[in-house]
Design a protein around this nucleic acid. Sequence first.
DNA 1: ACAACAATTCAATAATTGTTGTATAGTTGA
DNA 2: TCAACTATACAACAATTATTGAATTGTTGT
Lengths: 123, 123
Amino acid sequence: MDKLTATSVFESLASGVRLDVFRLLVKQGLDGMVAGEIASTLELPPTNLSFHLKALTQARLLRVEQEGRYQRYRANIPLMLDLIAYLTEECCAGNPQQCMDLRAESCCSSDLLPPISDNSTKL
Amino acid sequence: MDKLTATSVFESLASGVRLDVFRLLVKQGLDGMVAGEIASTLELPPTNLSFHLKALTQARLLRVEQEGRYQRYRANIPLMLDLIAYLTEECCAGNPQQCMDLRAESCCSSDLLPPISDNSTKL
DNA sequence: ACAACAATTCAATAATTGTTGTATAGTTGA
DNA sequence: TCAACTATACAACAATTATTGAATTGTTGT
């Protein structure tokens, strides 16, 4: 994960519309959705959705596949996982106890992140 | 985690300068850094850094504390963890096998995320 | 080939964001 | 109190981003 990739992804998610689109597609998983379904679900003008789909796709957060006259979009979940890893790299000054204390303050991450191994500097 | 909070955080991290600042402070953990240290480490004009520190602080990604004539900044790691949870909510259409397959594609997340429990819909 | 449909591109406009230098507010130590 | 220092606020300008309607490209089914 290089910096340019990371900022592109964050830029993509910095818009309420694009965040809605991405989260909707994360929920759909491998099924994905075609553009028209997304537009009607989120009640967006097709033109505007297209603008945001393009931004998300250029940032590689979405993958697109043609299906006849439809375009099916899917969330690029592995990229999202890489981004999370990039964000937490070398955290907490190499002090695992800090990581544990900080995780305890988070309202909902306890079931999402793994136990901290003693030799790890990661969250 | 509401949508406005999430987009503010992503907006904050959408700039290369702010991403550098935040990752630097994640590394420092609870120690944090004062503004001048950050500016000299990243070789930024103080004025410009101040602009970005303000944006990060308003998004609550940074906490600031006065120390005499210095301002000490620290990363708000619990907020970051909440954001990660928000992003992966209800993912993969409730199908844990999809989650596992997708995790296998990520280059570096295997040591960062927990085993998937059978009844979980989360990554 | 043709009419209907799905989606995107284009052009115009509105609104927001980033960077820099200068000026200002607050703190420290002699 | 005064000079030095830390950091931010302000103003001006450059650059980018978001939204909309109209036009365009490509696909389907008859």
